[in-house]
Amino acid sequence: MNSTQLLSLAEVRALAKSVLVSAGMDDHGSDVIADIVMCSERDGPRSHGLRNLPFYVQSFTSGYANAAATPTIERIAPGVLRGDGDNGYYQIAANMAREDLIALARQNGIAAFTCANCHHLGALRFDTEPLAEAGLVALAVVNSLSLVVPHGGLRPVFGTNPMSFACPREGGAPVVWDQASSTVALMDIKMAAAEGRALPQPAGLDAQGHPTADPEAILETQSLLPFGAHKGAAIAFLIEVLGAALAGGTLSVDNEQRKEHGALNIKGGATLIAIDPTRFGNVAFDDYISRICSEIEGNDDARVPGDGRLKKRVEAEAKGVAVSKDLLAQLKTMMSQG
């Protein structure tokens, strides 16, 4: 504990906002990203929280991303919104589009928001959870930089290509989960390397093309394995289509600009789909969700997907979170240089 400092969630958010503002973000954009950083520290994985701030800042200071982005959003079909992120972060554009997307879903039964010319870091569930809180079913995808090797291959083609799903749950918090298409998320591999520990299972290839659980070897080759072998690779393909191709974003393999700027992410594409279950004809929708959840809960050690975060949320809200003093020192140095 001597190497950590306890921070309240309010202090985490204030720290994140200060770092982002010092890097050139405006008030609105820094609010959106600071909320995501705080929620990541609260719910986990914390590798997506304060530890992501240096990557946000680097993308701005290198000139790769626009810290003062002003996204634009247009309605191009009865149930379709299309966004241009102005070379900023996708979450800012998604935040701007949220109310219109909810209204279109309620009007049409289903609606979608796509966005290109944007960057992404962090968990996707913070885009789907607000929709579920509004009573909608939501699915979000975003493609990323090429790190994942297709099943049987040696060269990365896909990004870690995450996806998130959320739906309302009567009488409780929404069911919300997100996951990468890789066996392990890149930030979790970086954290394992920083802490000097092996991964729980092989998650990438070493220099000889062999599966390995050594995070340092995986970071050297930048070659991650998809989860579930060919099944995870198929999901990564789906997200490449729904993310990059549908939105008109950069393919995961077209990352030369990212390399030139030394950045972690590329300008991929993102799609967020919202469904109003009340418009699909099943008046017992809520009962179905309750039944599915009840069949899982109490079923030995099984739990509803994503519910592990709710316990972490309660604990973090009550006690705060322990943050590495080294990380805090790094963030304070960044603020002083901003």
Score class of each variant (00 low, 15 high):
Glu297Arg: 15
Thr114Cys: 02
Gly248Phe: 02
Gln107Met: 05
Gly122Pro: 02
Ile218Gly: 01
Tyr64Val: 10
Ser146Gly: 13
Ala234Phe: 03
Ile73Cys: 01
Glu297Ala: 12
Val80Tyr: 01
Val283Tyr: 05
Met191Gln: 10
Gly248Ser: 04
Pro78Asp: 10
Ile76Arg: 11
Ser144Pro: 11
Glu11Gly: 04
Val283Cys: 07
Glu11His: 04
Cys115Phe: 03
Ile266Met: 10
Leu131Asp: 11
Ala233Pro: 08
Ala316Cys: 09
Thr61Phe: 03
Glu260Tyr: 04
Gly320Ala: 06
Gly83Asp: 05
Gly159Asn: 07
Leu205Val: 14
Phe227Trp: 13
Val241Glu: 06
Gln222Met: 12
Gln179Trp: 05
Gln257Cys: 06
Arg98Trp: 02
Leu219Ile: 04
Phe285Val: 15
Ile110Gly: 04
His230Gly: 06
Arg279Ile: 12
Asp307Leu: 03
Leu121Ile: 02
Val184Gln: 00
Ile266Thr: 15
Arg75Cys: 14
Leu145Phe: 07
Ala185Lys: 01
Lys319Met: 07
Gly85Ile: 03
Leu225Lys: 13
Pro211Ala: 05
Tyr89Cys: 10
Tyr90Val: 15
Val314Trp: 02
Glu133Gln: 15
His28Thr: 11
Ala270Met: 14
Ala166Ser: 15
Pro162Tyr: 06
Asp127Gly: 04
Leu272Ile: 15
Ala132His: 09
Leu331Gln: 04
Leu53Lys: 08
Phe165His: 08
Leu7Ser: 10
Ala217Cys: 06
Asp100Tyr: 00
Ala105Leu: 07
Thr250Asn: 05
Ile33Phe: 06
Leu53Trp: 06
Pro54Asp: 14
Ala198Phe: 05
Ala105Trp: 02
Tyr56Asp: 12
Pro226Glu: 03
Val148Gln: 01
Asn108Val: 07
His210Trp: 03
Val175Phe: 03
Glu99Gly: 04
Asn299Met: 13
Gln58Tyr: 02
Met163Gln: 06
Arg279Phe: 06
Ala140Val: 12
His48Gln: 13
Glu99Val: 09
Arg279Gln: 15
Ala69Trp: 00
Ala270Gln: 14
Gln58Asn: 09
Thr70Tyr: 02
Thr160Arg: 13
Ala198Tyr: 04
Leu53Val: 10
Met191Glu: 10
Ser3Met: 14
Ile296Val: 02
Ile36Val: 15
Ala103Phe: 03
Ala270Trp: 04
Ser252Val: 12
Glu170Val: 11
Thr183Leu: 08
Glu317Lys: 10
Pro168His: 12
Gly63Lys: 12
Phe280Val: 13
Met191Trp: 05
Leu139Ala: 09
Pro130Trp: 11
Gly269Ser: 09
Gly122Gln: 03
Ser164Glu: 12
Ala233Phe: 10
Val241Asp: 08
Ala112Pro: 01
Gly63Asn: 11
Gly172Phe: 03
Leu251Tyr: 11
Glu315Thr: 14
Arg155Met: 13
Arg106Lys: 11
Gly338Phe: 00
Gly248Tyr: 01
Gly209Phe: 07
Ser182Asp: 07
Gly172His: 08
Ser30Cys: 02
Thr114Val: 05
Ala23Gly: 00
Asn255Trp: 05
Glu129Arg: 08
Val184Ser: 00
Val37Gly: 02
Arg13Val: 01
Val21Thr: 12
Gly320Lys: 06
Lys325Phe: 00
Asn161Trp: 09
Ser336Arg: 01
Asp84Leu: 09
Arg75Gln: 15
Ala140Phe: 03
Glu260Gln: 14
Ala173Cys: 04
Gln330Ala: 15
Ser223Phe: 03
